[in-house]
């Protein structure tokens, strides 16, 4: 179940839209924050607060890349490999993350520290390659500085 405070947050969101279904995307984010991923319990909780069938919520959530359909590690790395990042070596960084931390694309390192998702352009092309770690932007990545940056995320 969602906490009382979270339920109030969702109720407030509902009032921002003429139809409560407008609050589906933001509510799924809230449930993801609360449960860590969109677990069956998360869908159940959102379904109750919004009065929307779980099947509809699952259908919506599965369309979008930023909802998590399985548990993720302690830190989520979202690395861009689209063209502007690719020409500055983003693919080498993917290999490095796999070799050094055991984080496969779409998977989590065996120690549960990092999950890795490949992104389709995060709008940081002027300072490529770029990644988001949780909600922090890191730009101008190299094989040297990426490991230093990731040291901060235990």
């Amino acid at each position: 179940m969602l906490s009382d405070k979270t339920i109030e947050e969702v109720e407030a969101l509902k009032r921002r839209y003429p139809d409560p279904r407008g609050a589906i995307l933001p509510s799924l984010y809230i449930a993801q924050r609360e449960f860590g991923w969109l677990s069956p319990e998360a869908f159940e909780a959102v379904s109750i607060v919004l009065g929307v069938p779980k099947a509809h919520l699952r259908g919506v959530a599965s369309f979008y890349a930023m909802y998590r359909h399985k548990p993720v590690g302690r830190h989520l790395i979202q690395l861009c490999t689209n063209v502007s990042c690719m020409i500055f070596g983003a693919e080498d960084l993917v290999s490095l993350l796999k070799n050094r931390y055991g984080a496969e694309v779409g998977g989590t390192s065996p120690d549960g520290r990092f999950s890795l998702v490949i992104m389709e352009c995060i709008g940081a092309c002027e300072a490529a390659p770029a990644m988001l770690v949780n909600e922090d932007f890191h730009n101008n990545l190299t094989e040297n500085n990426i490991t230093e940056i990731l040291e901060k995320y235990k």
Partner: peptide, 9 residues
């Protein structure tokens, strides 16, 4: 109101 998308081009 800010409505956050969820990663769909």
């Amino acid at each position: 109101t800010v409505h956050l998308g969820a990663g769909a081009y």
